[in-house]
Design a protein around this nucleic acid. Structure first.
Lengths: 185, 185
DNA sequence: TCAAAAGTGTTTCGAATACACCCATGT
DNA sequence: ACATGGGTGTATTCGAAACACTTTTGA
């Protein structure tokens, strides 16, 4: 059992790797909880099953943590990790893809946030620039985001106070199921 | 190791289930070849790892077979299968999704085919109607299909001879990576 | 009054879809 | 001729992106 947990901190995508052997007679879920601390993660899904360099068979899980959750462990920038490089790349690819066609951002963002803050998360996870304007439009149109109460007061440098938003759901939902070949109306 | 192979036959999506235990010291690939007859399948990918009802741990693989390949085994209509219903549904969902944003049709269709024949495959796999016109346009624009030599002569009832096409690649390629949140130009 | 940050209005773009119409063949 | 199946031309739709502009704040 290999845990690959991702989070965004300080505009940077970080990863934490954990291992736990599956004990005899133990359920997958129980071992997973030991390997990944599932309770503390906002989302967990299976990633792949593979042979590790040491010859053992392992199932890798992808976990996502919210930016503001204080999770202990050895968090490191994804691009500085060399062990399990292939599986870490797979985790990153999975996250990138799902950011585009699901509401998976809920698992990376804090409970409420401004569009600018959310943009930082997306930029770090996707690895390319994202327009705050279009991010807001896309996620509101899809009803992935909804307005939250209150607003963020500007800092010393001024600026218009930012509205707060939240994710409408905290469970994975596919929001753009058919890229093409939709069923006819 | 659980093999879930899918194919389209007579405008119907069929499934074949196979099991093979992983022998001690054996590689995943070798066991997989025994379970799924990988050499005969046009595409194989991992599906999930799960506990089977008998308490054993199994990794399920999705295999796809071309319509015209004569593969032995107990092929049955997907909607008539009750064992492993959950994992068969997952296989079907995976196929449906990938038909929409990858070139995975190459693994279901024969080497060359008319658009009408390809349409039948897509209809069976997707479970909803597909317009031949739009299927052709979408797959040609994405350069998933390319024209092949020759044409299909009409049958007794007449009709314009159909042009033949082939898939440009026989390896899985993502053709619509970003449903939204594309990188800026 | 100016700079900074957030947000809106509006246009443009392009892929996918819908549908009318034309083409090539057998009877 | 006409029915049948195949294919193209073209209009429409709609989500996403681009970008100019307005709003609201601090200094």
């Amino acid at each position: 059992m290999l845990g690959v947990a991702l989070r965004v901190r300080a505009a940077r995508l970080e990863v934490r790797l954990d291992r736990a052997p599956l004990r005899h007679g133990e359920s997958l879920e129980a071992a997973l909880a030991r390997a990944l601390d599932v309770g503390a993660l906002a989302h967990v899904e299976q990633l792949a099953t593979l042979f590790l360099p040491d010859g053992t068979l392992a199932t890798a899980y992808l976990g996502l943590a919210r930016a503001d959750d204080e999770l202990p462990g050895d968090w490191r920038a994804v691009d500085s990790v060399v062990e399990h490089a292939e599986i870490v790349a797979a985790a990153q690819a999975r996250l990138r893809a799902k950011l585009s066609y699901t509401n998976i951002g809920f698992a990376l963002a804090p409970a409420t946030f401004t569009i600018s803050e959310l943009r930082e998360v997306y930029v770090a996870a996707l690895g390319h620039d994202v327009s705050a304007t279009n991010l807001q439009r896309v996620l509101l149109r899809r009803r992935v985001l909804e307005p939250a109460e209150g607003r963020r007061e500007p800092g010393r440098t001024g600026g218009r106070p930012a509205a707060l938003f939240r994710f409408a759901s905290s469970r994975l939902e596919v929001t753009d199921e058919f890229a093409a070949l939709r069923p006819p109306r």
